[in-house]
Design a protein around this nucleic acid. Structure first.
Lengths: 235, 235
DNA sequence: TGTCTGTGTGACGAAACGGTGACGACGTCG
DNA sequence: CGACGTCGTCACCGTTTCGTCACACAGACA
């Protein structure tokens, strides 16, 4: 399906990862050190990189930065692995350009799902316009780059989390997102969060959305859905 | 019906299981230890493995892992049995590749129902196209992603349960679904539900379906059936 | 036609679900 | 250090949804 480069020094974990990736039909290659990983990333042109943050030589963050600085590897999605102890601020990971972020111990199943999602997002940029930087939707305007949102020409202040929640819902408009799907996509996979937390943040988001609050619909017993415009819905 | 391998060291429980499996028309073989179980799994090619998590020699988790690593046994569905005390995180079970998961004490009937469901799922994965996201059928339109349903261009509001019931019936259109089959597929695995409950929900569904209500037919003495279009029916 | 079994229907109590406000933990910044 | 902002969790409450029951009704069969 796709070629995945695993950069991970712990042998056991590396084995588990490559094994499961191959099980899932992927092509897996691996490196134990950062420099080797960078080399492979350039020569093998993987579709995705799984990167441990703790490596013997280079810090994972450095590897990530390098990957994102190099023109030949810049476009490759990076998924970071971090132990629970070393919890970086999630934002730092995304700042470095990581596309996703997983805290150990994680479930292999969930990891694979995430990889699928990222590959899908990366591989099919054609059927869905590759994330517009600026979104205009009814009375709502979102500037992704600037992380700013306006409702009826008047700016509202969202936290980073609320912003991600809004954008995620918007990107999947007209599709119900279950709470766990949202936890995956917005929070980043950590299952140690109550699903009710999603509700709370939806509430906070709605409050701030004021006149645009009705775009976020509740689907009882299932999850939440961003209401697309009528014509889009029927399309 | 199917060949089931029971790997369970407690004699009593093993007896009960094999007895009931045979009662239900299955072919049951059993092992008391993990290694023996693995051997039988390879030589007997069962259709399903019932695996206790607590075994005298190997841990059930190890057995499961081995089953899933071996090419010849990989495809066999595994159902895990665990005592309530040893509650594993459910995710761990699925990580190991278990297909289902039952906590003791369980009702034999429930176990059998689960086994049925898994066998049904495993036996016919290919004959049916992977579920269309949008369904158009006569005056009925179903959008699975959005969880919305229209009858004659006019949207109707279904509860989550009603939606699942409708989709399930539709997916198996032209085939009668017994009440217990529906309980399995729509309700999940709550065996503690009266079959009459199905009737009630069919009634509620029909009410909301208005002009499309006749798609849901009653087959007296058997169950319910979604009436496919005439040409499909004869196909 | 009468009986018997199986299904439709309406009502009711219990449980589940989601919205909401409050609280404490944590990190940041002045 | 204290004030502030953000986030995760919890408890409460109104509403919806669900499961069950009793009874009416319909089809099968003699």
């Amino acid at each position: 399906m796709a070629k995945v480069l695993v950069i991970e020094d712990e042998r056991d974990l590396q084995q588990v990862l490559t094994y499961n990736l191959r099980q899932a039909g992927h092509d897996a290659i691996s490196a134990e050190r950062g420099v080797e990983g960078l080399r492979l990333a350039r020569s093998e042109a993987p579709d995705l990189v799984l990167l441990d943050l703790m490596l013997p030589d280079l810090a994972g963050t450095e590897v990530c930065r390098s990957l994102k600085e190099d023109v030949t590897t810049r476009a490759i999605p990076v998924v970071m692995l971090t132990a629970r102890g070393e919890e970086i601020d999630r934002v730092v990971g995304f700042e470095l350009g990581a596309d996703d972020y997983i805290v150990k111990p994680f479930s292999v199943r969930e990891l694979l799902l995430r990889i699928q999602a990222i590959l899908r997002r990366a591989s099919a940029p054609s059927d869905r316009p590759p994330a517009e930087a600026s979104i205009e939707f009814g009375c709502l305007r979102i500037d992704r780059d600037a992380h700013r949102v306006w409702v009826d020409e008047h700016e509202i202040e969202l936290t980073a989390l609320e912003f991600r929640l809004l954008v995620t819902l918007y990107e999947r408009r007209n599709r119900v997102q279950t709470r766990s799907a949202l936890l995956d996509d917005v929070w980043g996979i950590q299952a140690d969060i109550t699903t009710r937390t999603v509700d709370t943040h939806v509430k906070r988001l709605r409050e701030k959305l004021e006149g645009a609050r009705d775009y976020v619909e509740t689907v009882r017993g299932v999850g939440y859905r961003f209401k697309g415009s009528p014509d889009e819905a029927s399309a």
